[in-house]
Design a protein around this nucleic acid. Sequence first.
DNA 1: GCAGACTTGGAAACCGCTTTCCTGGGAGGT
DNA 2: ACCTCCCAGGAAAGCGGTTTCCAAGTCTGC
Lengths: 330, 330
Amino acid sequence: MVTLEDVAKQAGVSLATASRVLNGSTRQVGAALRARVEQAADELGYRANIAAQTLARGASNVIGIVVHDLTDPYFAALADGAMRAAATEGLLVMVGTTHRDPEQEIAYVATLNAQRVRAVLLVGSRVADPAVTGRLRGELARYQAGGGRAACVGQDLLGVDTVAPANRLGAAELARALADLGHTRFAVLAGPPHLVTAADRCAGFVEALEELGLPAPQVIHGPFDRDGGYAAASQAGGATCVFAVNDVMAVGALAAYRERGVRVPDDVSVAGFDDIVTLRDHVPALATVRLPLKDMGARALELALGEGDPVVVEQVAGEVVLRESVRRMT
Amino acid sequence: MVTLEDVAKQAGVSLATASRVLNGSTRQVGAALRARVEQAADELGYRANIAAQTLARGASNVIGIVVHDLTDPYFAALADGAMRAAATEGLLVMVGTTHRDPEQEIAYVATLNAQRVRAVLLVGSRVADPAVTGRLRGELARYQAGGGRAACVGQDLLGVDTVAPANRLGAAELARALADLGHTRFAVLAGPPHLVTAADRCAGFVEALEELGLPAPQVIHGPFDRDGGYAAASQAGGATCVFAVNDVMAVGALAAYRERGVRVPDDVSVAGFDDIVTLRDHVPALATVRLPLKDMGARALELALGEGDPVVVEQVAGEVVLRESVRRMT
DNA sequence: GCAGACTTGGAAACCGCTTTCCTGGGAGGT
DNA sequence: ACCTCCCAGGAAAGCGGTTTCCAAGTCTGC
């Protein structure tokens, strides 16, 4: 591997000069020397050793993003938003997937801390486990104590800058919209009780129905993914409208109904949450609550990078979008 | 930030001993000292500085993955496969997205080289531009000259270990399967002519039809994504069966037909390529050629990490899967 | 009881780059 | 002409680890 010293030697200049020419410095270097250095670097095929730069500068140009599952379009969209924002800042991105294991999340924060990344983004729902959350907070605190910056997309439970989707509110608005269509008997495919995102959406929905004076919906717990939706849908009976707490689950539910010959929306209405872009061509088109995922990812990165001495928490509103998968009761 | 020296001082041992205890060495350290060091590290909240380790060891524990677009489930699946494999090896992953810009791809290789990553994975179709390919090869060669390892998922055009989907073959088999159903008039939504993956699939399909003595299909070029499929479908006329060179385009095509009131498969059959998992609940279910994307990603990482003095190129066969989106002609 | 072979701990060189501090020389002012 | 001031260039001190090389024990086996 060719080093800066090789380049300096070849160009007949000092290490300092070579460094100043090649790796961006405030100091000026004379045109003649500059040219010699650049030529030497080119001839030798010099590539700066970033590990050395990071060590010397005491600051790296990479950020870390921790998501649950990259193949879930929800996280892909969020990550993509953050990555685009990072690219415009000239930052590299290290991505970690936890596959929904909170321990992995904690471990990643430790690892990213060791990497001295500029910022870490924790993307995805928190879990309702004070012990785990506490340990994660501890790890984050340690990271931040060393000058690291962090932000989160999800719930404001970590004491860091947060982009928080208005899950409760969105679900409540959805409930009201569905009630407006004349539905009265609901079921909620509620996901796992310990997942805060799932729980919030479920709670918002249930509370809104209560306020409207409607009967409490049937709440069915299960996994937060497509198969969870599929399985939960099979247990729902008697409801004219089913709310799956995310789009992917809703798609699973639709699949279950299709297989059983239950027509959507004729026999049952189905709504989801998130408005996953990849699903826009699904048939029937899915009623949902739209979240600006890319923007949220990008915004989270901004927050992490920004000064923000006081921790900032930004609520992001969702927008109810009714589509073919729901119908008006006559 | 607490350093190893702080730990050593607190534990009353030398830097060398502290290093050996905390950061994995072949050398033994006595139980007493080991305990003291570990306690000190714990009390101080020590986290090794990986940049320093990388510099000293001359080897990093991160790999780079370069994909076109993370929100495209095709790449997400491939990347996920590679990332899982990386995780089992204890490697961290740096992900770069090029958004289909070959220049970006080259730039990423340079950057990852600067990072001295252990290996880089280039995931996605090559482009049919000798100049660009040449520059990419040059950058890769430079990286490999420095001890870097590389692999590619796509076409064997880079002179590195490659996992190559059998695009031609898969498309040919698909063509035969569709011909078996009695179709004779085909259209191909062919994607961009310069994208090798798209071109290969198109060519395989066209050749197979020719061998069967069937009339040449209408070939419609356009973008390689959902909207490209949507637009291309609108231009196809007279065919009873349409082959979109990837699933995402096929979904776009289905959307276009739906909007125009063209029934699939009654009026026209539609097939794709890839068998994207996220699309399994699409209606109508998409006939396609299944590629084991996760395995391919994982395999590419293995290849990159393996010895492999001779460059190895692995063909991965696709499996034709006929589903509701195609019908038998009577 | 002692030579030789292992072990364990520490000192210090080194990884590749940044940056502070110093030096010499030219420009500008009087 | 003389003195300052400023600026380009270089020497060298880190940045935080790893690892080689030594020295000093500690075991063996005879």
